[in-house]
Design a protein around this nucleic acid. Structure first.
Lengths: 217, 217, 217, 217
DNA sequence: TATGAATGAGATTTCATTCAT
DNA sequence: GATGAATGAAATCTCATTCAT
C-alpha cells in the first residue's frame, strides 16, 4: 500500500527498504542517470524481489524520491552535528569545507555536486524531489535555508556583517560552497587542485561576509 | 548513415535537422527530462517523420547530443560577440550579467541553469555531451575556458589581479555567474529578486578579482 | 488443505469463510467483474489476512466458486420456502414474481440478472460454477430443474396443461422469468416500468401454460 | 495513436486490425473469458507483433470493445438483410429463428447467447461495450430497439396487436428469442432439442402478439 | 490458526529502430 | 530523401501463492 514516505527515521526504515535506498544510492554514485534507473536494476542490486519494492512504494518514482529524500535528511543531520559542535562562523566554514572535501561517500547519492545537480533540475525525478522538499520539515533542509540560518546566527554573534542584504549573503555563501564542490569533484573540465583553491576560498568568505577578517587558516 | 556531427555551422544545418534541434530545445525548455525524451516526441514536435530522424542521426542519443552541442555553440557565439564589443573587464562583467538576466529564450535549451545542470551531470545524455565537449574546438566553449580567457585578458590589460592563483579566480568567477543564474531562475528555493542581488554581486566580482575597485554600476 | 466445498450448511460455515463469502457477494453486487477480482481485494474487504483464505481454500477460483455456490443454495432455499408456503401454480407464479421484484439484496451476488449472466457464460469462473452445479445435489437447484418441478407439480394438481412438451414449457417459463428480471434490472437499454409489464406477464404465463386461465391478479 | 473506433465499415478496417478482431472472435468463441484475454494471446493468435496492436488501439480494453462492437454491427447488418428480404411479421419470425439456429459461426463472437451474456453484464469489458452502445448509431442495434422496430412495423401492417403495451411486447419477444438461443446453445442445463421446442415457440409468439394466429409452420 | 511479507511469473504498455514503399 | 507501419525487447506494475512467524 505504499506506506513509506521517505521521512522515517533511519531506525524505523524497514530492512528491505534500506536495501532499496542503498541500491539507489550506489547506482546514482555510479553515475547512472536517475531518470533512467529501472526497478529491475534497483531490486536486483538490492538483492530482493521486484514485487517487494511495490509492497513499500506505490511506484518507481516513489522509490527514487524517497531514497533521495532519505539521504538529504542524512546529509542535513550530519551538517546539524557539525553546527552543534562548533558555534563560531569561521569555525563552521572550516568544518563545512572539510566535510565537502571528504564527503564523497558512495552511499550518499545526494552529496556534493549531485545535490547541486538535483537542485538545478526542474524535470523528472528532481522535480518530484523539489516538490516534496517544499513540505515541512524538509524545507529547512534546503541549502539556502541552512545558509540563512548560519548567517543569522553569525549576525547574532556579531561575527557577520549586518549591512548587506540577507539575500545577497545567502547567494554568495551558497555560490562559494558550490564552487568548492565543483573543484573537489572536478566538474566539467574544471581540473583543479582543491588544496590550492581552498585557503583563498575560505578567506574570501570571511572577508566578504564577516565584520572583521577571520584569523589565518 | 548519420552524417550530422552537431558541429555544422547554422547555415549548413539541413532544414529537417534544424526542425529536430528546435523540437529538442522546446522540449527541454518545457522541462521535459532530457534522458526521457522519446524519438516519437521529438519528430512529432518537429513535424517530420520518425524515420527521417534516422536519415541524419544514428541514434536517439545522437539527436539529443547534437542538438545540445549546437545550442552550446550558439551560446558561445553570442558571448563571443559581447566580448568583441567590449574589452574592459568591468564592462564585460556588466554585459554578461545583462545577458544572463534576459537570456531565457525558450529556443536555447542550454542557456542559464540548464547549462549548469548539464555540466554538473555525469550520467545519460549529459555524459555524452561532456565527452564530446572535450574535443576541439568545443573545449574552448566550456564555461571555465571562457572564464579563464576573460581573466587572462583582464590581467593583460592590467585590470585583474595577478597575485591570485588562476584556478581560484576561475572558480570564483564561475561560481558568481552560477549564483546569479540561479537567482534569475529562482532555482531551488532561492527565491530572490535579481535586481536586489545584482549590484552587490557585480561589485563583489570587481572587488575580489580586480586591481582597483570598478566604478559604480 | 482446502476443505471447504461450498456445500456446507450456513451454520457450518466457519466465521472467516463467511466473511470471505460476504466480501465476494458485495464485490459482485458492486459490479466488479467476477474473473478480475483479486484475492487481496476479497480478503481486504473481508477484513482478514490474505494467507487465511488459503487455509480454507486451495485457490482463488475455489473461493469464488464456493461463494457463488453458497449463494445459489441460499437462493434455492428461499425459493423452496416460497413453494412450501403456497401450492397452487398461479399463487407460486405470483410469489416468484414478487420475489424477483424486491430480490436485489446486495448480499446475494447471484440474484436476478447476475444469475442469468453466470448461466449464459461458459468461461472463467462461470464455467467452474457450471461444472460444480452438475454434481448432486446442486443440479436440482438449477433454474430449469426448479421450473420443471413446479410444472410437474402443476400438472399433478391438474392446473398445468399436459398437451405441451415439457421441454417447451420449461423454456417458456424460464424465458418469462428472465424477461421480468431484465425488466426489473433495466438491463441493456431496456428501460421499462416493471409495474406496467407485470400484470400482462403474469396472465400470459397462466394463459399459455395453464388448463384454465388463472384468476385476475 | 489509437484512431480505430470500431465503427469503421468492414472495407475500411486495416488488415492488421481485422486480424486482431478475428483473433478476439476466435478466442471468445473458444470460451475464453473476455475479461481475462491478454494482449499477448490476441496478437499471437492474430500473428502480429504485440506492439502493433498499440499502433491502432490505446489499450487492451479498446481492442476488445472495438472487436465486439464490430461484430455487433455485422450481426445487425445480417438482421437488416433478413428484414429487408421479408416484410410480414410471421415471415420475419421464421427467418430470425432460422438464423439463430445456424448462427453459431465461430467468427462471430457476439452471436447468440454470448450477446445475451454481454448484455446482462455490468462489469469489465461488457460495461464498456454497453456504454459505447448508447452512442449513435449503435443504440439502434440493441436487441430491444430491433424488437421494437419489428413490432411497430407489424402494427403498421395490421399484423401485430395494438392493445398490448409496447414495453410488454418488446419484453416478450426478446425473451422468446433468448429462450430459443439458450435452447440452441444448450446453455446452462437447458439440454433441449431445438427442433422439438421451435414449432411451439413460433406459434406462441404469433398467438400472443398477433391479431390473428399465424399460419402453420 | 492466522498472518502478511516476499516473490517471480506474467500482464500491459512504451519505444528505439528497421525497412518496404 | 522521406515516411510511418511494424516489431520485440524491455519497462512498469499486479497478483496468486508460499511460508516463516
Amino acid at each position: 500500500m505504499g506506506k513509506i514516505t521517505g521521512l522515517e527515521r533511519p531506525q524505523d526504515v524497514p530492512a528491505k527498504v534500506m536495501l532499496l535506498y542503498e541500491a539507489v544510492a550506489h547506482l546514482i554514485a555510479e553515475d547512472v542517470d536517475m531518470n533512467s534507473i529501472s526497478v529491475a536494476t534497483i531490486t536486483e542490486k538490492a538483492g530482493i524481489g521486484k514485487g517487494t519494492a511495490y509492497e513499500y512504494f506505490d511506484s518507481k518514482d516513489d522509490i527514487l524520491v524517497c531514497a533521495i529524500i532519505f539521504y538529504v535528511q542524512q546529509l542535513y543531520e550530519k551538517v546539524e552535528g557539525l553546527l552543534t559542535s562548533e558555534v563560531t562562523f569561521a569555525g563552521r566554514m572550516k568544518l563545512l569545507l572539510d566535510e565537502m572535501e571528504k564527503g564523497q561517500g558512495c552511499d550518499r547519492c545526494c552529496s556534493g555536486t549531485r545535490y547541486v545537480h538535483i537542485i538545478t533540475d526542474r524535470s523528472g525525478i528532481s522535480r518530484l524531489v523539489a516538490q516534496k522538499m517544499q513540505e515541512e520539515p524538509l524545507r529547512d533542509y534546503l541549502p539556502d535555508a541552512v545558509c540563512e540560518r548560519i548567517l543569522r546566527e553569525g549576525i547574532a554573534r556579531g561575527e557577520v556583517r549586518e549591512d548587506l542584504p540577507m539575500e545577497y549573503m545567502i547567494c554568495t555563501l551558497f555560490s562559494k560552497f558550490m564552487a568548492y564542490l565543483m573543484c573537489v569533484n572536478s566538474v566539467g573540465s574544471l581540473k583543479m587542485y582543491p588544496e590550492k583553491v581552498r585557503p583563498y576560498l575560505y578567506r574570501s568568505i570571511l572577508k566578504e561576509l564577516c565584520v572583521r577578517e577571520g584569523e589565518e587558516l
